[in-house]
């Protein structure tokens, strides 16, 4: 408290200012720590510590409730290499992502461009397409399951009336991922559309006017020379968030197919869930979690890289 010791002696102005700044910065720092503490405590207890524990658990053979456990080094990862369920889950997850990402991004882009040109019906379309985003996916999965039911669903009835064979989407090993991906696209398209619409409205009108005068007035030229490049950052963002969301597919699998038929809809998160919370094979589940985490972080890093380098202007 030496700083405040001699307020009566008139110190030279700059010194006084320094003192005041020092006091202020101390007040600020104290408030800073105080305000950051709850967040910091939570970051450590429910984020950092659990991640560290997961990484550590992945090197053990711990089973929930077991009294004895041992460090087994890379044992869980070796087991993973030989585990057909893991490979199937990984492959199915990637196939799912490979359908959902292009499907929902392209669909959303087309819808956004068309909706953006509407005046009176803009809000109506926006509401309709956005509706699935707000709904409880579990409940709607039950509905989709019913809609695509090969015996009593409307789609099957429609196909039958057209003389086509009814498809048992969720019972057919070759169709099940496509069926789940359809629901994935259905849920994501509105979200992506809203993001694209935000990107579209941010394109200055002047650019289209300039393009008109420069002769780029063919719809194709307008799209290729103005719209698409101007949407670059939005597109990267949409693709990456969609990829991460699709990568975390779980709800539809848990409700509709439970990994079946023949394991053709087993996905990474569902395998994690089964190993961890149904079989309580904690060590192995932790190793799966680490693989999952690394993949998602890699995607996020890719996004940061892309946004910084590729589409920067």
């Amino acid at each position: 408290m030496t700083v405040l010791a001699a307020p009566s002696t008139p110190a030279p102005a700059p010194a006084a200012a320094t003192v005041r700044r020092a006091v202020q910065s101390r007040v600020e720092a104290r408030a800073g720590y105080l305000f950051a503490t709850p967040a910091l405590v939570l970051i450590v207890t429910i984020l950092l510590a659990p991640i560290a524990v997961v990484i550590a658990l992945a090197f053990t053979d711990y089973q929930l409730g077991a009294v004895e456990w041992a460090w087994i080094g890379l044992g869980n990862y070796e087991r993973m290499l030989d585990d057909p369920v893991f490979w199937r889950s990984l492959a199915n997850t990637f196939i799912y992502v490979a359908i959902v990402v292009p499907g929902s991004v392209v669909f959303a882009l087309v819808v956004a461009i068309l909706v953006n040109e509407r005046k009176k019906t803009r809000t109506l379309y926006q509401i309709i397409y956005f509706l699935p985003v707000t709904t409880t996916l579990i409940a709607m999965s039950v509905v989709w399951h019913f809609v695509l039911n090969p015996q009593i669903g409307p789609i099957a009835a429609l196909l039958r009336s057209l003389g086509l064979p009814a498809m048992d989407v969720f019972g057919d090993p070759d169709l099940v991922l496509a069926g789940l991906a359809t629901i994935g696209i259905w849920q994501l398209v509105g979200f992506n559309m809203v993001l694209f619409l935000a990107g579209l409205t941010a394109i200055p009108r002047d650019l289209y006017d300039a393009a008109d005068i420069d002769g780029a007035d063919h719809p194709w030229d307008r799209f290729v020379r103005v719209t698409w490049p101007m949407l670059g950052p939005t597109t990267v963002f949409v693709v990456v968030t969609t990829t991460i969301t699709a990568f975390r597919v779980f709800d539809t699998v848990a409700v509709i197919t439970r990994g079946g038929p023949l394991g053709r809809s087993e996905v990474l998160l569902y395998a994690m869930y089964l190993e961890g919370f149904q079989y309580f094979d904690i060590g192995y589940a932790a190793a799966l979690t680490v693989v999952f985490l690394v993949t998602v972080v890699a995607l996020a890093v890719m996004q940061a890289f892309f946004l910084d380098r590729k589409v920067h202007y």
């Binding site: 200055p204 002047d206 650019l207 006017d209 300039a210 008109d212 005068i213 420069d214 002769g215 007035d217 020379r225 103005v226 490049p229």
Partner: peptide, 16 residues
């Protein structure tokens, strides 16, 4: 616009 052979400089420049 492109057939009128006019050029326009915009307030915002409207560069691509």
């Amino acid at each position: 616009p492109k057939q009128r052979n006019v050029a326009m400089v915009f307030q915002s420049y409207a560069l691509y």
